[in-house]
Design a binder for these strands. Structure first.
Lengths: 337, 337
DNA sequence: GCTTCCAGTGGGAGCGCTCCCAGCTCAGAT
DNA sequence: ATCTGAGCTGGGAGCGCTCCCACTGGAAGC
């Protein structure tokens, strides 16, 4: 781009004219459609090369009624939620799959009121061929908007109030239960929980798993101590927990960020991990591996989550009806327990 | 979306018909253009409401020759580069600014050959109104593609071989110099460097800053020990460094991830930080704050980087000629030095 | 020899919007 | 009463592509 008025891009008509064929034939060549003689195909291809022709995606979109793009919407009341490396992983997975399907990825951080409005409009105006929706909270306005969208919507994680037609979730309850059972099997009896936001289904499900496991073991669950999935909130929750329940001997944190925060508080207050207090996280992000001590955590297939959401969306966009998916989780034992 | 063939969206013509006006008038109302009588404006607005009309962005794009989207391209030979929380921060900044300009954000992870092809096509086909390009490496094919793009391109960080017309960079040399000077001022004399990829300008610039500072202090720079900006590569580089130069007393790492890796190795080999070895990072990401010990690091305004790139792009898209920007860095002292 | 068929072809009607422009109305100036 | 010009208005020509359809001619079938 030189900044000067760029010469207009050649159009398909010009290609056709140059190749001495009709626009229809040129179009067929471009779309690799049949019913074109080899000679004309060749002529068109030459003309394309000579003119440096590139099809105009907008015009194509208008004619085909397909935008060629899928949106990934991350809800939340503040953009910092996106700082969680979790989403980066989801994006990597989704991006790969969309690339194969030749769809572009639009990323919408629906944090502000304005951002939410734009997503709603996207949903209603067919501004994308489909939408993936994540991180919904209780009564999230986007859930309602998705309800009456004109395009397929795939949910990442189930929203709180309803079960959508298409979603990919992770076995949060099972993972949390496994983590807690693991703590119990290590002989811990005073097991606390640092929960994620309880206005999200993931936050609630993980607390449920924790509680179920303790009840099944005949132990008393502690009331949920809520964080917001960030490291500082984990550190703060750990402080509060130690104040309330000084004799606890284990903590289940609903994600690795908060577990890392808990580790920091424990270190600061002179507790040894795992000798005095065992800690389990959830997610198995990089932070779990590099924490000190390395965190035992519940691995969830995050990239696969993104990939499967995208795959599901592509299937739905193509007019089929994919089945919802729940991806398994798996405990990874390291030295924090 | 019910899955059944969705009733066709109402068009502007239908709105106009219902309001008893011409398409032109209806269009003017929608675009808040002048020359519409209050009564007709009112009638159109009512019709819009009754019909649940939403403008078709594709049709508008075709008519206006503006797509309403900007792309953020992250180059790299493998998508895992995107796992670096750095990019998430950039996106948060860019996203906010684009939202204000009413542009959608397309995210392109140009890792595979195919991904790169798609970006090139995007550049040539005007599939977006503008593009932000990051993480280019030596001889990156995208640099050439950007050169002859039909749309404005803003670079995040300068590419290696050329100085683009529009870019936002960070004062890498200055930051690295400050970090190294800081180590020297703490009395360290055997200061090693764990570099980022030296086929990126950021990687080289940071090494340059390190070297300059040492030379200025009359000390000997060590040869670059190259990592790839990831935690494991930092840990590995630290091991190699200790093998080569067992008596080193400080390390400058070209980013926080690698610094965290270095910390891990130092811990494993029984070196005390900062007593035996002082460590400085670069970026000031979360990992720096939660590391043990918390990392002294070079803070760079990452969200601002994203914001300024987006702002610059919007300016360029609007036909103006913004000035390139270099954002300042600042040393943050914590307990690792 | 004649239909029958089909690969190959180009014309043309959209897709749903913007925007130019010609025409029309009516207040205010002359 | 006439002229001027500003404020409205709607018709129509695109924007650049896809896709339906009617048409051709030659190969195959009877």
């Amino acid at each position: 781009m030189t900044g000067a008025a760029p010469r207009r891009q050649p159009t398909l008509d010009e290609v056709a004219a140059r190749a001495g064929v009709s626009r229809s034939v040129a179009s067929r060549v471009l779309n690799k459609a049949p019913h074109v003689s080899p000679s004309k195909r060749e002529a068109v291809e030459r003309a394309v090369r000579q003119l440096g022709y590139v099809a105009n995606p907008t015009a194509r979109a208008l004619a085909t009624r397909q935008t060629g793009a899928a949106a990934l919407v991350i809800s939340g009341e503040d953009p910092s939620i996106f700082a969680d490396p979790f989403f980066a992983q989801v994006i990597v997975g989704a991006s790969q799959t969309l690339e194969e399907a030749d769809l572009h990825l639009m990323l919408c951080l629906a944090a502000s009121e304005r951002g939410r409005k734009r997503v709603e409009e996207l949903l209603r105006s067919r501004g994308a061929d489909g939408v993936m929706l994540m991180a919904l909270r209780d009564g999230d306005p986007l859930a309602a908007a998705a309800e009456e969208a004109e395009i397929p919507v795939v949910f990442g994680g189930r929203p709180v109030d309803s079960v959508p037609r298409w979603y990919v979730d992770v076995d949060n309850v099972g993972g949390a239960r496994a983590a807690t059972e693991h703590l119990v099997s290590r002989g811990r009896t005073r097991v606390a929980a640092i929960c994620g936001r309880l206005d999200t289904e993931a936050g609630r499900a993980r607390y449920r798993g924790y509680r179920d496991a303790l009840l099944a073991a005949g132990l008393d669950p502690l009331p949920p101590r809520e964080g917001d999935f960030t490291e500082p909130s984990g550190a703060a929750a750990m402080e509060a927990l130690l104040a309330d329940t000084p004799d606890l001997d284990a903590v289940f944190a609903a994600n690795d960020n908060m577990a890392a925060g808990a580790l920091r508080t424990l270190r600061a207050t002179g507790r040894a991990v795992p000798a005095d207090v065992a800690v389990v996280g959830f997610d198995d992000l990089t932070v779990a591996r590099v924490a000190d001590p390395p965190l035992t955590t519940v691995h969830q297939p995050i990239t696969a989550l993104g990939r499967e959401m995208a795959r599901m969306l592509v299937t739905a966009v193509n007019g089929h009806d994919p089945t919802p998916l729940i991806l398994p989780t798996r405990l990874v034992t390291r030295s924090s327990t």
